[in-house]
């Protein structure tokens, strides 16, 4: 599903409501069959582990090596001692390498994340998601720092990841063409309200361009 709308429309807030980092002031949010705000402790962590989010690579810790940032996707299933030990001797290296290989960064696995370019960091964020294996994938402008070829690949990866586990992908996107190619449903937001909800097949690139304030 693609989420479109001008900036400030509430796309990021909606994604935050779904993954539980934003609490609703009114109403309720049901995700994968559970009430997000009602869960506490272990049950809350288990639900969160099933929802994976990529922001615009802002969630990475620059001082950590790439391997640790990718492994952070597994913190929900690791006990604290294993998480701590992994910072000394990286754990589960094969899976990390496999994930990085899929985004084309296997050779940078031990690099400090802050030394990577914006686009490379975004791919590290994708690799983190590959390791997390969530059922529901949320992506906040996953293609914004990537060139067209990489953006295409990134979205393909995200959609494939969601499909692997019979889940769904919700991505906020700026590129109408990309939204129509990779998503089956398009929802448009303006000032926090849904003003468009249609199957991608029924829309054209021109319809969507209007949403971003492009000249009519």
């Amino acid at each position: 599903m693609a989420l479109v709308g001008p900036s400030g429309a509430g796309k990021s807030t909606l994604l935050g409501l779904v993954n539980g980092s934003v609490l609703p002031t009114a109403g309720s949010v049901r995700v994968l069959g559970d009430e997000v705000a009602a869960l506490r402790g272990r049950a809350q962590r288990q639900l969160r582990a099933r929802v994976g989010t990529v922001h615009q690579h802002l969630e990475l810790v620059g001082q950590l090596r790439v391997v640790h940032n990718v492994n952070a996707g597994r913190l929900s299933s690791w006990p604290a001692w294993r998480a701590a030990w992994s910072l000394v001797r990286p754990q589960g290296l094969p899976e990390v390498l496999a994930a990085l290989d899929r985004v084309g960064l296997a050779d940078r696995v031990f690099e400090r994340t802050e030394r990577l370019s914006g686009g490379q960091r975004q791919r590290v964020a994708l690799a983190r998601l590959l390791v997390q294996q969530p059922e529901l994938v949320l992506a906040d402008e996953p293609a914004s720092a990537l060139d067209p070829v990489l953006a295409e690949r990134a979205l393909g990866l995200l959609a494939g990841l969601a499909a692997e586990r019979d889940g769904a992908l919700i991505a906020s996107l700026h590129d109408p063409a990309l939204a129509l190619r990779h998503c089956t449903r398009v929802v448009g937001l303006v000032e926090g309200r849904v003003v468009l909800d249609a199957p991608a097949a029924a829309l054209t690139v021109g319809d969507l361009a209007d949403f971003y304030g492009a000249p009519r």
Partner: peptide
């Protein structure tokens, strides 16, 4: 920057894990 830690929590990391990595 609070975002890395918030992202880890949103992924289901516990308080210790979130502190160690975030």
């Amino acid at each position: 920057d609070p975002r890395p830690r918030a992202a880890l929590t949103a992924m289901g990391a516990g308080p210790v894990g979130g502190w160690l990595y975030g």
